[in-house]
Structure formats: structure tokens, C-alpha cells
Nucleic acid binder design. Structure first.
Lengths: 355, 355
DNA sequence: TTGTAAGCGTTATCAC
DNA sequence: GTGATAACGCTTACAA
């Protein structure tokens, strides 16, 4: 009854060989599977002889432990969940890479979810990740409420580190860029060029970076004794189209600005497009600076003066904080990624491309 | 398989520390855990009354099944492994997003690994993914050998679909862009402008896209009765710096080209940088076209004429093929993403930005 | 229609 | 030192 399929009748194709399990290794080394486990994991005590035997058997069988079984048993997955609003954005892609390499160094895997800028999907992503018992969470929130967040991740006390977009008073830490300082650098430089009517293109209200940059702008003006004119502040989604529309509106003002601070690459490009269409000379008629240094910034016309920062560092810093929190226990750590002013031509400086 | 446990079913007050297990649900519904399993999974037959009781108990407890335990038991993880050479590149980030959304639609999760353009890391990434018993693999290879590939994924017969960079004769399918057609479009357009000495900036030899684009270039010239001059072909890594150096070299030729086809955004930007530094007028002195349409292409000076394609579609197409192969069994499916010529100014056309 | 029991591949807690 | 044995949370023959 057993042998209904004699050897000769086996299919020509080689049956997929079953992966060796710990039990197989144990058998081959003539020990119990608990001993084999100890030998391979290094935990517990056992004689060097048996350890060697087990290790050898494992090597011969090409044994690879099952992370799945291990996770189920140990209640640790060595997996970190990452949620971002849009992974195809260069910024988040860079943070992802930074996080990934930092995590890899510590032996963690990454499970990625994209919230597509929808709160509902963000919540679903978090729930999925929690279901998978990720050991920790890296989250650039797209606007989940504190209550919803608590409801989903609160019960599991899975540590969470926020980056870029932060949910206040939650999680084990947060990482952002020096938004205020960056804007101050930009505004300061423009003021140095003699500008007094400086416009701001910022993102929608309610976002961490949007808010910090706007506040930074107002502070930068105030500390320099300049008035804050609400008309010069335009909040819109971070897209080229919105940047263009906002710039158009600013340019049609009776008392138009002489300089403009764009808080993202896209907004700066929108400004560029608007000026080009209207025949406005940059930086002659309007000086432009940007919070963010795209890799093609030097090749734009005019080459973009901006504030640069290391997006990958945001990810790796967040990952480091998370890993720290994983064995440290609690507390709250805050990281800020440094910014740097990169002076080129769009601000009015007489910069020329090197070489 | 789909999300039968919407997050709305979470308990209002997450006071429960330990997550409810199936056994808890069973207890509360006064049935055995196998019955509870059947009720929740919809498999097997059971009375409507008990089913309702179980479902209600599950809802009351805020029960969420453990994918870990389920995977271990079912030998299916509903997780797909994705390996790319560099996730911070906009191209791969876009493919990732495409893949992610297609997979999500079918109830799969994504586990991401970055090979950092190193064969060793690529192999390690694959091994890790196989260890995790991913149900399938999406791979843009960085150059792993067929033998090594077989060694790592062969034994498990985990289906694999290649995209962008392809390992021939392996896996269940592959997806690339219409490289030959794209180059033909570009070369054809330049020839239409009267150019006969057309240079090519391509990537390093040994890459799928690099090779296909170079072959496409030679074919495009030949079919138009133009000679192929090896001096006009420059193979170098896809970086701005390399593009610049290659352009410099071409420009110093005794018989310099009058037009140039860059096979990537970076190479085109390098060409731009070289021309700007040398005071070469684009497109007057040199016409430039590019395989790839960066989102800022219209804002460069001159606005870039190029061949555009949907990078996200590569990822989603690859994911679709993989998912198909997951239940279809074997066979090999090949996908090609369409390209489109976007005419602007760098080729010599009299294009003006809309509006 | 439902329950019992045997796993999936590990590790931890005991005895011996 | 080493080996049973019992989990981890789930699915699925097989029995009842």
C-alpha cells in the first residue's frame, strides 16, 4: 500500500528536494534535535565533540534554519516594517535605502508598505505589519490620528520611530531634517542679496515639514526685522503644477516678491516653469532658492541655489534609533539631520559650474 | 486570502495585552479550534449557527490571525521577495511601487532587498528570501551567474520573474522595455533632422538594457544605410560624471558627432554638463536625445527630447506575470513595456513649453 | 456537522 | 551534557 509508485515509475523531472530541517541534521549527527539546536545556536552547554558533529552534519546537508519557525517560537521576527507615503519619490526611496542598509547591518529584514498618501491605507499597512509581528516600525506618517495609531500599534507595544512626517507624542523617537535652520540659511542668503519681499512656497498645512518650514520662514524674517506678509505665503501640495500656479499668483500681485523660497524640488521646478512661460528672468527679475538639492540642481538653468541634506541619513538614523530602542527598552530619542547651504546661480550669485 | 479581517474589526479599547489566538476564539464560541478555523477560513462545511457564533467571538476578541503560524503550516507566506541593485534610483523606486501595488491587490506582501550592485549581496539577498520561504521572486539582477542562481533558488523551485536586468533561460518570465524600438525612434528622429554622425552613450557591457540599446543603435543606423563608427560608441557606467567624460572625448574627435543619443538620464545630464562647460550650444552645435524621460525633462535647458516609458508598469507587469505563474504553474512569459517619443527642443525641434 | 490529533520547524524547560 | 516534551498559532486528515 505504501509503495504504489515504484522507482521506475517516478517522473523524469527530479522531485523538488525537501529542505533539510533541524531534525534531519540531528538524525545525521545522531543527537536529539534539542542538542542540534543548541549546537547551532551556541546557546546552552554541550561537549565540543557533539557540537562539531552537528555543525558538520548541518554543513553536509546544507541546512538553513527556517526563520518562520524560529519567529513563531521566539516571538521575534527580526523584521522591521517600513511605511512611507510614496516609495517612488526620490526622497523616500533614499530614506528607504538608508534604513535598509542600517537594518541589514544589524541582521534585520525590511517589510515595505506604501500608504499612497491615504490614511486608510496607512492604517491598513500598520495593521498588516503588526499582524506579521514585526519587531519594530519605521513610519513616515501620511496623517494617521493618534487614536487610530494607538488602536493599531498601541496594543502590541511594537516600538515605532517616526521620520520626516511625525506623529507627536507617540513612538520611541523621531528623525527629521533641520527645517528651521535650513530655511533660515535660505532666507538669510536672500536678505544678504538685498531682498526684502521674499515669498514662500510651502506644502499643505498639517504636515510636519511643511509646518516647520513655514514657522522657520516667519522666524527668519522676524529675526531680521522684516515683516511677514501672509500674501507672500502659498501653501499647496508638493507638485510641479502647484508650484507653477502659486508662482503665477505671486507674480500677479500688485507688490510682487523679488525673491522666492521653494520648500521642495517640485515647487522650485514649478516656479521655474512659470517664469519660463512668462519670460521672467531668473535670477534677474526673481531670485529663487530651494529647500532640497536635487541631483540635477546644478544643471538647471539657472543652476539652483539650495539647502542640501542627506535623505539616506534620515532613514539610517531612524533605523539606528529603532534598533537602539529594541534592546534598550524605552525612552524617546530625537534625531535631526543637518542641512547645508549650496550656493549656485538662481539666488543671484555669480556662480559658474566647476571646470 | 483577501483581507477578511478589516481593521475596523479591531477592538475599540485595546486593553488586551496578549493578542487573541484562534484557541481563544474557539473557547469563547464554545467550539474546537478546528471548527473555529473552518468558520473563519470558509473552508469545509459547518452549520450557519456555529459559524456566526465563531465570527462573533472573533469580532469581540478583535482576533487577527497570525500570518506567521499560518505560513508555517500552509507552507505559503503570501510574501514576494524583491531584489534590486539600488532602491534609491528613481527607476527602481518606480518599478518597486508598481510591483507593490500589483502585489497588494492580490494579497501579497513585499520583502525588499537591495543588492547594492554587488553580486555577493545579490546572492545573499536571494538566499535570505528563500530562507523566508517567499512564494515568489522579483529580480533585477546585478549580474549573478546562472549556476549561482540555480544553486540558491533552484532547489526550492520558487518562481522568479526578472525585470530590467535579465538572466537568460531562468525563471518564469521577464519584463523589459522596448529597448530596440526606443533607440530606433530616437535615431530615426535625429536622422530626420539630417544628422549622419550620431554618437551613442551607453552603459557598461554585460547589462541587458545596455546591450539591447547598443544593438538597437547599430541596427537603427544600418537599416537607414548609415555606417556604424565604433569611435562614436561610448560605454561607461550610468553616471553624470561618466556621461560628461564620454561627451568630452567625443567632442575632441577630429570628426566629431553632430548628434548624440544618451541611453539614460544621467548620461544625458553628463552631456549637458560637458556642453555647458565647453560653451557648446545645444541643439545648435550638438543635438541631444535621451532614452528615458525624467520628470524634470521639460525644464532642462534645452528641454530634453526623449523616449519615455512607464517604469512602474515594469514592476506591475513583472508582478502580474509572477502571480500568474503562482497558480498557473510553469511556462515562460515575456513582457515588454512600450516606449513613446517625446519631442521637445534638444533634438533641434522648435518646441515651446505648453502655456 | 464537529472534534481529535498530528503536524509545520523551531526553542525552552525540564528531567536524567 | 543530553534528550524527551511541550509549546508557538495555525490547518487538515481522519474519526465520530
Amino acid at each position: 500500500l505504501r509503495n504504489r509508485f515504484p522507482i521506475a515509475a517516478l517522473p523524469a523531472a527530479p522531485a523538488a528536494k525537501r529542505r533539510a530541517t533541524l531534525a534531519d541534521v540531528a538524525d545525521r549527527a545522531h543527537v536529539s534535535s534539542s542538542t542540534a539546536s543548541r549546537a547551532l545556536s551556541g546557546r546552552g552547554t554541550l561537549s565540543p565533540a557533539t557540537r562539531d558533529a552537528v555543525v558538520e552534519a548541518a554543513a553536509e546537508l546544507g541546512y538553513r534554519p527556517s526563520p518562520l519557525a524560529r519567529s513563531l517560537r521566539m516571538r521575534r521576527t527580526h523584521t522591521i516594517g517600513l511605511v512611507v507615503p510614496d516609495i517612488s519619490s526620490p526622497f523616500y526611496a533614499a530614506t528607504l535605502r538608508g534604513a535598509q542598509s542600517a537594518l541589514e547591518r544589524s541582521g534585520y529584514r525590511l517589510m515595505l508598505m506604501d500608504s499612497a498618501q491615504e490614511v486608510g491605507r496607512e492604517a491598513a499597512a500598520l495593521a498588516t505589519l503588526i499582524d506579521h509581528q514585526v519587531d519594530g516600525l519605521l513610519l513616515a506618517t501620511t496623517g494617521i490620528s493618534a487614536d487610530r495609531f494607538d488602536e493599531i500599534v498601541g496594543g502590541s507595544d511594537t516600538p515605532c520611530v517616526f521620520f520626516d512626517e511625525i506623529l507627536p507624542d507617540r513612538g520611541r523617537g523621531s528623525v527629521g531634517v533641520e527645517n528651521a535652520r535650513g530655511i533660515d540659511l535660505l532666507v538669510g542668503h536672500l536678505v544678504g542679496h538685498g531682498h526684502r519681499r521674499i515669498a514662500l512656497l510651502t506644502g499643505p498645512a498639517g504636515y510636519t515639514s511643511s509646518g516647520e518650514r513655514r514657522a522657520g520662514y516667519e522666524l527668519a524674517l522676524t529675526t531680521r526685522g522684516l515683516p511677514v506678509d501672509p500674501e507672500l505665503i502659498r501653501a499647496a501640495p508638493w507638485s510641479i503644477e502647484d508650484g507653477r500656479a502659486s508662482t503665477d499668483a505671486l507674480l500677479e500681485l500688485a507688490d510682487a516678491p523679488t525673491a522666492l523660497v521653494a520648500t521642495s524640488t517640485e515647487l522650485a521646478l514649478g516656479c521655474l516653469a512659470a517664469c519660463r512661460a512668462r519670460g521672467i528672468d531668473l535670477p534677474g527679475d526673481l531670485a529663487l532658492v530651494c529647500f532640497d538639492d536635487p541631483y540635477f540642481g546644478a544643471l538647471l538653468e539657472p543652476a539652483l541655489t539650495c539647502v542640501a541634506y542627506d535623505a539616506a541619513a534620515i532613514g539610517s538614523e531612524a533605523a539606528s534609533i529603532l534598533i537602539g530602542s529594541l534592546d534598550d527598552g524605552d525612552g524617546y530619542r530625537e534625531g535631526r539631520i543637518d542641512v547645508e547651504l549650496v550656493v549656485r546661480r538662481s539666488c543671484g550669485c555669480a556662480w559658474r559650474e566647476p571646470q
